[in-house]
């Protein structure tokens, strides 16, 4: 099982790097789909099949399809080496990235030490248990989120509507 985790972890990281470095937008989007699929496999290995399937259906299946469609419709071609790259990004980027990685590593190290997160309790990740959490313990945030999404959908419809 552990070997599978490393394989898909490496796939996810390599694909994530590929998202940033691809010159063609469609390839970036495809790499992102690979990242999401690899994450789904890792969820599966962690014993959360429901989350894994939802990850694929919602992110890889629905959201990324829209990304790909938009890229295809815009017919965005190759992105050339851009001349007008912001200079401060070049000088500020790497140190900030380094700072972020160090910060992240320190937090993880303080929390779990060097032995890894083996102490985490195995949770019940069955669909029924997740449903109970969503509709009983976290019913208010759940409903608020659904209203937010509804507002976003209405906003999108209003924006996309032709002037009558």
């Amino acid at each position: 099982m552990e070997i599978l985790f490393y394989i898909f972890g490496i796939v996810a990281v390599v694909a994530a790097i590929s998202v940033v470095f691809q010159r063609t937008p469609v390839y970036s989007a495809l790499s992102l789909i690979v990242v999401l699929a690899a994450l789904a496999v890792i969820y599966l290995l962690l014993g959360a099949p429901f989350i894994a399937m939802v990850q694929v259906i919602v992110y890889a299946g629905a959201i990324m399809v829209l990304f790909v469609l938009v890229i295809m419709l815009l017919n965005a071609g190759h992105e050339g080496p851009s001349a007008h790259r912001a200079r401060f990004a070049r000088w500020l980027g790497p140190p900030l990235l380094l700072a972020f990685i160090v910060e992240f590593a320190v937090i993880v190290w303080k929390q779990y030490g060097l032995t890894g997160a083996a102490s985490a309790q195995p949770l019940d990740a069955s669909p029924a248990a997740i449903g109970r959490l969503l509709f009983q313990s976290y019913i208010l945030p759940f409903e608020v989120t659904s209203i937010l999404i509804l507002v976003a959908v209405l906003g999108a419809v209003v924006l996309a509507k032709k002037q009558v």
Partner: peptide, 20 residues
Amino acid sequence: NVGLLFVFAVTSLGVYSVAL
């Protein structure tokens, strides 16, 4: 134990072949 969701997940990925 999530067989049906698996089918739907795979079907939803099938869209890519057509779009691509």
